[in-house]
Simulated scan of single mutants.
Amino acid sequence: MRNRILAGLGVVALATVGFAAPANAVSDTTADLWLVHAFPDDALGDGESSTVTIDIGNGAIVLDGVTPETVAPQVDLDPNTYNVTITRESDSTELFNADVTLEAGVSYTAVAHPSIDGDDEVNGFTVSIFENDLSTIAAGEGKITVRHTAGVGAVDIRSGSAVVAGGLANPNEGTLTLPAGVVSDVNAAVAGTDTRAIELGDVTLAEGQHIFVHAFGPDGGDFGAVIFDIEGLHSTPGGIPGGTAGLVDEGTNGIAFGLAGAAALMLLIAGGVIAVRRNAVTAER
Rank of each mutant, 00 (worst) to 15 (best):
I86E: 06
H148K: 15
I56A: 03
P73T: 09
L95P: 07
V75S: 05
S135D: 14
I61L: 11
P114N: 03
G151H: 01
I129F: 08
V66D: 01
V100M: 13
V75T: 09
N132W: 08
A154S: 15
V127P: 03
Q74D: 10
A110P: 12
F125Q: 00
N123G: 05
T70V: 11
V111K: 13
A72V: 10
N80Y: 08
P73H: 07
D78E: 06
T85I: 12
F96L: 14
D64L: 14
G151S: 05
T149K: 13
Q74H: 07
A98G: 08
D76T: 11
T67C: 02
N58S: 04
Q74I: 02
V146C: 08
K143W: 01
P68R: 11
V62D: 01
P79S: 03
D99M: 02
P79E: 04
E94K: 10
F125L: 06
S128G: 13
V71D: 11
G57F: 00
G142K: 00
G153L: 14
I116V: 15
A98C: 13
N97M: 02
R88H: 03
A72N: 08
A98R: 10
T70W: 04
G151I: 09
A104R: 09
G140T: 00
S128C: 07
I116G: 08
T81V: 14
G59A: 05
S115E: 13
E103W: 06
G65L: 02
V66G: 05
G142D: 02
R147Q: 14
E69F: 15
V146M: 12
V122S: 03
G65W: 15
E121L: 15
H148G: 11
T149P: 08
P73E: 13
A60C: 02
D133S: 02
V152D: 12
G59E: 07
E89K: 14
S92A: 14
A98M: 09
T136Y: 01
N132T: 06
I137R: 00
V100S: 10
I61T: 02
V146Y: 06
G151E: 12
P114R: 07
S135T: 12
I61D: 03
T145G: 01
G153H: 13
L63K: 10
V71Y: 09
F96Q: 09
N80H: 06
V66Y: 00
E131N: 10
G124L: 01
L134P: 08
N83Q: 15
T136E: 07
V152I: 15
N97P: 02
N80Q: 09
A139M: 03
N58Y: 04
S128Q: 10
E69T: 15
G151F: 06
S90W: 00
T70F: 10
V152E: 14
I56C: 00
L63F: 15
G65S: 11
H148A: 07
V100G: 08
L63S: 09
G151V: 08
G105R: 08
A60T: 07
I137L: 04
E103M: 14
I144Q: 01
I137Q: 00
T109H: 08
N123T: 07
D133Q: 05
L77E: 04
Q74E: 12
E103Y: 14
N132A: 11
K143C: 02
N83S: 06
S128V: 13
D120H: 10
